[in-house]
C-alpha cells in the first residue's frame, strides 16, 4: 500500500475522512485510526485533461472521481479506454506522478 491512500477513520463516529484531517468533519472528534482506501465502486465523473501539471510527458491525462461502494469518494487516474458515467470500476495502486527523484504512488481505476 502507498502512504497516499490511507484515510482517517474517526474513533468516535466512524466517519472516514479522506483526505485525513486533524478534526473529524462529521463530529469534531480529534482521534482517528488509519484505514486503507480502495475497492470497487462506480465512476462519478471523469475528464481528459490536456492542460497538464508539470511532471507529465503524456499528451493528456484521464482523471476521475469514483464513488466507492463503502460511500467514500476518491480522486485518481482512470485507466479505461471506454469510460462511461456510472460504470463499475475498481482501484489499483500505481505510479501517478514522477517528479524525478521518488515516484509517487496513488490510486488508479480500472474496469471492475
Amino acid at each position: 500500500m502507498s502512504d497516499n491512500v490511507y484515510g482517517a477513520k474517526c474513533t468516535s463516529c466512524g466517519t472516514v475522512n479522506y483526505p485525513t484531517r486533524a478534526v473529524c468533519r462529521n463530529c469534531r472528534n480529534e482521534t482517528f485510526e488509519p484505514v486503507e482506501i480502495g475497492g470497487e465502486g462506480k465512476l462519478l465523473t471523469y475528464t481528459d485533461v490536456y492542460a497538464l501539471a508539470i511532471d507529465y510527458e503524456t499528451r493528456y491525462l484521464r482523471l476521475a472521481i469514483v464513488e466507492l461502494d463503502d460511500g467514500i469518494r476518491v480522486t485518481g487516474q482512470l485507466l479505461d479506454d471506454d469510460p462511461k458515467l456510472g460504470k463499475r470500476v475498481k482501484t489499483t495502486i500505481g505510479v501517478v506522478r514522477d517528479p524525478g527523484e521518488a515516484p509517487i504512488q496513488g490510486l488508479q481505476f480500472v474496469p471492475a
Partner: peptide, 12 residues
C-alpha cells in the same frame, strides 16, 4: 495529498 499528486489542475 488526494488531488494534486494525481496531476489535478484547475481545468481538470
Amino acid at each position: 495529498e488526494v488531488e494534486y499528486i494525481y496531476g489535478v489542475t484547475l481545468p481538470s
